[in-house]
Design a protein around this nucleic acid. Structure first.
Lengths: 110, 110
DNA sequence: AATATTGTTCGTAGTTTTGCGAACAACAAA
DNA sequence: TTTGTTGTTCGCAAAACTACGAACAATATT
């Protein structure tokens, strides 16, 4: 596989769009960054980082969870959240393949 | 810089969210892929690839342009679109830094 | 001047997103 | 049993998104 035929659609368009959509809000980027900076934490910790109502935080967490980027686990009476590593890596690979698929004319196709 | 302190916030959260949001629709992913597969093309070519009304295609192109991922240029009577390479690479770097910032506990922090 | 080509913009409709406070659920503690 | 703690869900409102056809703009062609 030379540089002109790399990354032949090594991702699912729908899934990539879903990941991207979940990342398409500054608050959710902040949440993901926060979670990525540690092993795991509770809802309250995340809520404390953000200047918005807890109902809204919960909503954003729900969307990130549905997109598969994070996961939540009940530890009564708290809820522990963390990055979903498997899907995180999948997303990483998808975005990588997506951005890598551009034709590199100057390098290999002149 | 060892593996535990890499990628210290080497991206702008707001801008990353803007890129992600623009990519958060399957049609727009398709458009970006199509444009990435060639040097440039006209609106009509893009429109032909998609099963939606031209007004909607135009709208999606506008959003991608506003997010900085593509650029358009009038070549009367056509409009030529192409990937905005500068911002494409910026987006690539941002996503890369974002996904790379997760703590790699098993590898370096035990 | 009338006609054709290529896209954008406008106006509209329906859906989704974002955000909030209030109410609720599940459990622990007094 | 009452009270507290921790988060989720509900109901609402405002805004943004998605999609379409029709109208329009800019230019070429007949």
């Amino acid at each position: 596989m030379n540089c002109c035929e790399k990354n032949n659609q090594s991702f699912d368009e729908e899934q990539l769009a879903r990941f991207a959509k979940a990342m398409g809000h500054p608050i959710r980027i902040t949440i993901l960054q926060f979670l990525a900076s540690m092993d795991s934490c509770y809802f309250g910790d995340i809520n404390n980082e953000l200047p918005i109502a807890k109902a809204t935080v919960s909503q954003h967490l729900k969307e990130l969870k549905e997109a598969g980027l994070i996961q939540g686990e009940i530890e009564t009476p708290k809820v522990k959240y963390c990055i979903n590593r498997e899907n995180w890596e999948k997303a990483q690979a998808y975005f990588d393949a997506f951005f890598g698929q551009i034709i590199e004319k100057k390098i290999c196709c002149d």
